[in-house]
Amino acid sequence: MKNQPIFHYQKEIDRLRDRFQFDFVSLALVQSAEDRFVLTWQYASGNLNERYKRIVLHSGKGIAGIVFKTGKPMLISNVTTDLNARDLFNYPIIVAERLKSLGAVPLWEGKRVIGVLLAGYRAENRLDAASFEHFQQELGAEFGAFCVKEGVHP
């Protein structure tokens, strides 16, 4: 039996941040909690502080929760114009890392979303639809043990 190489998520998100010149890249993974699944940010690159480690999201809440629930990528080109300031408490990673332009993609294991990869900037309008699509294409079909696109499995 052939051994699979170990995938180092921290090194990979550091590499993605450098390659695309993102200010921040993070990986949220599903954690089981009393039979209810929650998402926590496990890895971060370019973080301002350690607050991301304390963020716990449920399906449908926050960026990771929405991407997890829908299984679809999410793009916010300009936080100031795309989100209501009174709703920012629903997006703790945006507040904690002072993100202004970001995108998140679901990571699949089989037919289930098991994680969310988020990349963003601390300046408005740095990530638009074309550059977000380019990022997703360059990311490829696989990210470690996960699939980036639904229906594309290693």
Rank of each mutant, 00 (worst) to 15 (best):
20 F>M: 04
20 F>I: 01
21 Q>N: 10
21 Q>H: 12
22 F>R: 01
22 F>T: 04
23 D>R: 00
25 V>A: 01
27 L>Q: 06
28 A>I: 06
29 L>K: 08
29 L>C: 06
32 S>P: 15
32 S>V: 11
32 S>K: 14
34 E>D: 14
34 E>T: 07
36 R>P: 07
36 R>V: 12
38 V>Q: 12
38 V>W: 08
38 V>M: 12
39 L>V: 02
39 L>Q: 02
40 T>D: 12
42 Q>F: 13
42 Q>D: 10
43 Y>L: 05
43 Y>H: 15
43 Y>P: 10
45 S>L: 00
47 N>W: 08
47 N>Q: 15
47 N>P: 08
48 L>S: 02
49 N>G: 08
50 E>Y: 10
52 Y>N: 04
52 Y>F: 15
57 L>S: 09
58 H>W: 09
59 S>C: 05
59 S>D: 03
60 G>C: 09
62 G>L: 06
62 G>N: 06
63 I>W: 07
65 G>Y: 11
66 I>Q: 15
67 V>K: 00
69 K>S: 14
69 K>I: 00
70 T>F: 07
71 G>K: 03
71 G>H: 04
72 K>I: 04
72 K>T: 09
74 M>E: 15
75 L>N: 04
76 I>W: 11
78 N>W: 11
79 V>R: 05
79 V>S: 08
81 T>S: 15
83 L>A: 06
85 A>N: 10
88 L>H: 01
88 L>C: 00
91 Y>S: 02
92 P>T: 02
93 I>Q: 05
93 I>N: 04
93 I>T: 05
95 V>C: 07
96 A>M: 03
96 A>Q: 07
98 R>I: 08
103 G>P: 02
103 G>D: 01
106 P>D: 00
107 L>G: 06
108 W>Q: 01
109 E>A: 11
111 K>Y: 12
111 K>H: 10
111 K>M: 08
112 R>I: 04
112 R>N: 12
115 G>P: 15
116 V>H: 07
117 L>H: 03
117 L>F: 04
118 L>E: 15
119 A>M: 01
120 G>T: 02
122 R>W: 08
124 E>V: 03
124 E>R: 09
125 N>V: 00
126 R>D: 03
126 R>F: 07
127 L>I: 08
128 D>K: 10
128 D>W: 10
128 D>A: 08
129 A>V: 12
130 A>M: 11
132 F>Q: 09
132 F>S: 08
134 H>V: 11
135 F>H: 04
